[in-house]
Simulated assay, not measured.
Amino acid sequence: MQNVVIDEAALTSMQTLLGEHFESTLLFCHSEFDRLHQELAEHFDTDQETAVRNAHSLKSNAAQFGAVSLAEIARQIEHLLGGSESNQARVYLEQLAPHISSTKEKMTSWLVTQ
């Protein structure tokens, strides 16, 4: 599995922007990581357009909250599926669940130290 990389400056910026709503928004973001992963996996073999859209949304959400490595995995899936390279995209898809879990843990640990 790829190392989890978090851009703490992005988290700090979001925290400053959202103020008292940051923690609840971060928790919502974590649930979105899970939802988008689930929908991506559900549509991976049956609806490529929907799968690409879910990968794109996961990439965007992850990047916005500084989840650099998660955004990169989602970007790879989006790119490979868009190029009809589903076998290679599947390798990244299999990395998503553990990477999302580790990303959420690292982000939560960061939050606790603030």
Rank of each mutant, 00 (worst) to 15 (best):
1 M>G: 11
4 V>N: 04
6 I>E: 01
7 D>F: 06
7 D>V: 09
8 E>L: 10
9 A>H: 12
10 A>W: 00
10 A>I: 06
12 T>S: 14
15 Q>E: 08
15 Q>D: 10
16 T>L: 07
18 L>A: 04
19 G>V: 06
20 E>F: 09
20 E>L: 08
21 H>M: 14
24 S>N: 14
24 S>H: 13
27 L>P: 06
27 L>T: 13
27 L>I: 14
29 C>Q: 10
30 H>N: 07
35 R>F: 08
37 H>D: 10
40 L>E: 02
41 A>F: 04
43 H>K: 13
45 D>H: 10
45 D>T: 14
46 T>N: 03
48 Q>R: 11
48 Q>G: 15
50 T>E: 06
50 T>A: 08
52 V>C: 04
56 H>G: 02
57 S>L: 05
58 L>W: 00
59 K>Y: 02
60 S>C: 02
62 A>E: 01
62 A>L: 02
62 A>S: 04
63 A>W: 00
64 Q>I: 09
66 G>W: 02
66 G>M: 00
67 A>L: 10
68 V>Q: 11
70 L>F: 08
71 A>V: 15
71 A>E: 01
74 A>R: 01
75 R>S: 05
77 I>T: 00
78 E>T: 09
82 G>E: 05
87 N>R: 15
87 N>Q: 15
88 Q>N: 12
89 A>G: 00
90 R>T: 08
91 V>G: 04
94 E>Y: 07
94 E>R: 11
96 L>Y: 04
96 L>R: 01
96 L>T: 08
98 P>R: 14
98 P>S: 12
100 I>D: 00
101 S>G: 07
103 T>D: 01
105 E>P: 05
107 M>K: 02
107 M>N: 00
107 M>Q: 03
107 M>P: 04
109 S>N: 12
109 S>M: 13
109 S>K: 13
112 V>D: 09
113 T>E: 13
